[in-house]
């Protein structure tokens, strides 16, 4: 177990730097929030948005619902995704998520599946949820498996929103959902 944590702890230095996950901190008990936040930023690098979604000034990270990252998301501000500075925005409804590139849904139960499917199919929004049960809402689900944060990916939903996932990302996903599945 310790090894697994250490491994997680050693996940790219730059990630540690970005999130101020300093070496002394690594020895401490890292909060799952921080790892997820680091993963969130890394995932954006393995996902390819359609070209028209890149014709913007900022890369918008939107949070629907309460902050499930314990305020660690703010660490992303100042970084860039496809050379666009990252902005964090809290929204209260799905309608506000049309301009978002990445949408963190902290309460998936409150979001109707159809509305979300409509939104992502129309606006290419990468949806991220916690837990393995809400894979129909989140294209990427952070699942805690053996105390390690693992990824579950819904390829069908991603395909619906016009997003492409790098094969590498798929390789590290512990579970991948498709239409056939």
């Amino acid at each position: 177990m310790a090894k697994g944590w250490r491994q997680i702890c050693f996940v790219p230095t730059f990630a540690a730097l970005i999130f101020s996950c300093m070496v002394p901190v690594c020895h401490a008990e890292l909060k799952t929030h921080q790892i997820k936040a680091a993963y969130l930023y890394q995932i954006s690098k393995f996902v390819f948005w359609p070209a028209e979604r890149k014709q913007v000034d900022t890369f918008q990270v939107c949070q629907l619902g309460p902050d499930s990252y314990g305020g660690t998301l703010q660490k992303m501000v100042g970084r860039t995704v496809f050379n666009k500075p990252v902005t964090i925005q809290s929204i209260s409804s799905l309608q506000q998520a049309q301009s978002c590139h990445l949408l963190i849904i902290s309460d998936p139960k409150s979001v109707p599946s159809d509305s979300l499917r409509k939104l992502v199919s129309e606006h290419s929004v990468l949806t991220v949820v916690d837990g393995s049960k809400h894979w129909d809402i989140g294209m990427v689900s952070f699942v805690l498996e053996k105390k390690r944060v693992r990824l579950h990916i819904n390829l069908s939903l991603a395909k619906l929103s016009g997003l492409t996932f790098a094969a590498n990302l798929l390789e590290v996903a512990s579970e991948i959902h498709t239409d056939k599945k």
């Binding site: 997680i8 050693f10 790219p12 990824l151 590498n168 390789e171």
Partner: peptide
């Protein structure tokens, strides 16, 4: 290249598999 994600996401199994 293939091992990037495994490394980034600390997936040693995947890395070894690669």
């Amino acid at each position: 290249n293939r091992s990037t994600a495994a490394l980034v996401f600390a997936d040693t199994h995947q890395a070894e598999a690669n």
